[in-house]
Write a protein that binds this DNA or RNA. Sequence first.
DNA 1: ATAGGCAATCGTCGATTAACGATACTAGGA
DNA 2: TCCTAGTATCGTTAATCGACGATTGCCTAT
Lengths: 117, 117
Amino acid sequence: MAAKTSPNELCCPPEPAQPELSLQTLEGAEADEELAKLAKAIGHPARVRILRMLSRKEARVCSQIVDELPLAQSTVSEHLRILKEAGLVRSTQDGLRVGYCINFDGLRRLKALVSIV
Amino acid sequence: MAAKTSPNELCCPPEPAQPELSLQTLEGAEADEELAKLAKAIGHPARVRILRMLSRKEARVCSQIVDELPLAQSTVSEHLRILKEAGLVRSTQDGLRVGYCINFDGLRRLKALVSIV
DNA sequence: ATAGGCAATCGTCGATTAACGATACTAGGA
DNA sequence: TCCTAGTATCGTTAATCGACGATTGCCTAT
């Protein structure tokens, strides 16, 4: 089954199947740490806004995101790095630009963890 | 007239009907800040664990929470303050003790905001 | 009235975060 | 090739966080 770019996710290649995302429970110390880590990643207004922009397809490229925010390019890049490290966004090199998109696996995971608190 | 504990024990008095919780949208800059604030509050493993303890009724009194965690009393108190300030827990004076419980309005709000990202 | 226990607050310290400008890196175009 | 544009990283600074012990304040029981 070709991981063709479905209408919803065009920007980034298929997820590398993060191992952590498979054998996960929703409770216990590990789950607590995981939720805390994800929550911390969205614990800043700029990062929430970036996530929203990506989920609404308002922007997909780093420079677009920079244009939308009242922050320096380096600061935005750092926020993107944090989101990426938390597993909430993915990126792909698109020529000179870098495209970002939501990592739906991570977002699902966050929602699942929050929902059972 | 000991502190009576009714079975389903809502530990705390009815919610003071926080004004912010009524006329809220799920998008926009305000919603971004609100979600960031709530997420930041649960962006620490100890606070996630406290929320879980409260939601599972494993503990309701400050001293019990302190006993469950490998942290000093003052540290736990600070975490509780943060959760309370974010609107995720409420507290009530129960004689000498202080009872804590989930603020379901705040939790619902968090879940709603997360769900539409 | 006072003693004792519980929780909040204070003061401090080191670690982390957020922001910026400057610089380095990298891929395309001249 | 060299230049340029788009990103990432580096280095710095101020602010915030997390943890602790000590202290304070408050209730209850004695």
